[in-house]
Each structure stands twice: as structure tokens, then as C-alpha cells.
Design a protein around this nucleic acid. Sequence first.
DNA 1: CCAAAATTTGACTTTTACGTCAAAGTCAAT
DNA 2: ATTGACTTTGACGTAAAAGTCAAATTTTGG
Lengths: 128, 128
Amino acid sequence: MNKYYTITELTREFGVSTRTLRFYEDEGLIHPERRGRTRLFRSADRRLIMEILRGRRIGFTIAEIREIIQVYRDPPGEAGQLRLLMKRVEEKRDELHQKRKDIEETLEELGNVEEACLTRLAEIGVGT
Amino acid sequence: MNKYYTITELTREFGVSTRTLRFYEDEGLIHPERRGRTRLFRSADRRLIMEILRGRRIGFTIAEIREIIQVYRDPPGEAGQLRLLMKRVEEKRDELHQKRKDIEETLEELGNVEEACLTRLAEIGVGT
DNA sequence: CCAAAATTTGACTTTTACGTCAAAGTCAAT
DNA sequence: ATTGACTTTGACGTAAAAGTCAAATTTTGG
């Protein structure tokens, strides 16, 4: 148990380059251990990378992802900070709701396009 | 009826800069008319801009958006092209499904964070 | 132990989607 | 006719998120 992952294992699994993972480390998003100079990734790092990539897919910037990770690492204790965080969370939530709506609409449009294609193909098919 | 919109009317409505709209024109996404040099936007242009911005929100690149617009402008007539288009549509659809899933998951996490904040605030509140 | 494969660091480059600025033109109203 | 607001074009700049390349080092398999 408690296996180590090499950097290329992870790049293959997630379809990213080593440069990307080193970039994330430089940016302070992950902190793999070292044996000598070589990076050793634990499954915690692996899970974190999954979250980073998910964040990236939905359009979060590195800075935003870092902010989220920070909050998980040490949540604010003071009331003012907590309220501020909640406001930020609300904003993100609204943003994501909008994005989800955009996606629904676009999925509908894609459905229409596909249907149009099928119709057209049928028309052509009839003619042959 | 058939009103013209000025560029700044649209920038104000959509919260983008004039530079952005001119950029979209340079990129061949929109084709506003001209009176002299001045751009005149019709409601068709306005609707197109809305679609462009929606595409941008869900992470489409300018090139992808252009591709979509092209398809609407002149849909392919040949069977091979139609099948190719359908494949591309399928890919986009998968991508959007993934993205929607990512959003759902992140919304859940945000919910957890908010809950944790509320709990913590209550704890603090009790102590005062 | 040694060659091949993998990894690291660091510097430089690239792409995307605009921002910024300057200079000049345009238009409406005073 | 002049002021002031708005617009255009063109050139150059920028930030984010890596990509690319080279040189050195390290690890691993036989």
C-alpha cells in the first residue's frame, strides 16, 4: 500500500505533460515529496491533481484553484473571513449555475444540429 | 423596427469592450454593416454576439465558435461532410456532458464549504 | 556496472483573447 | 465653427497556461 506514483504514470493517466505537473508545483498547487531530486507522488497528490484538472475543465484559473485548495488546507477561523468566504462561494455558485444553463442550451442546439444532419442524410439517402 | 445598435450600446449591454467586438469582427464571427466607417449592428448581430459570449462562457475557443457559426451559415450538403459534422457534434456533446458533471460536483463541494462556514460561525457565535 | 530511459532545471517560446494607446476621423449640439 | 463625445484603424503589449528545447543528472534493467 501507500504506493508512490512517478510523474509519467500520472501524466499518462491524466493526459497531461510533465511540464504541466511541474508547473502546478511551481504554482504551489501540489507538493510531491522528493527522493533526491525526483518527485514522488502519493495518492493524495493524485487526488489533488484530479481536482485541479476538474477545476481547469470548468474554467477556473490557477489562482482560483489555489484559493480553493488553500481554504481546504486551513479554513478561516475568524467570523469576518468566514463571511467573506461565503460571499465568494455564492459568487462562484452563481457563475456555475450560469455555466450549467449555457451548457444545457448548447446541448439542445447540438441536438438540433444532429437532427438536421440526420434529416439531410435521409433525404440524400432516398435519392440514391 | 429594424433598429440599429451602436457599438457602445452593445458593449454596455453585454459588459464587453469595443475592442472585443472589433476583435470578433476581425475573426470573422460577426459582420456588422457600415455607414461610412461606423459599424451598425442589427438585432441579428446582437443575437450572434449573445451566442458567441455563451460559447465563450462554456470554454469554447474563437475557432470553435467560428466553426459552429459557419455550420449554421452554410450547412454541409454532402454525405461525408454530414457524417463528419455529426462526429464532431458527438465529441462536443461528450465534452459538455463531462463539463456538466464537473459543475455538479463542484457545486456540491461549494455546498459543503458553505455548510462548514455556517457551522463554524454558529460555534463562534455561541461563544460570544 | 553500464547503457538506455526517465527526470530535472531553467530559459525561452507560443497561443489565445483581448487591453492599451495614439492619431485621426465623425457627428451632434451649442 | 467649435467643443466634446464617440468611433476607427493600426500597432504594440500583456497575462495565463502551458509547450519546447537543451543540458545535466538520475534511475533502472540486463
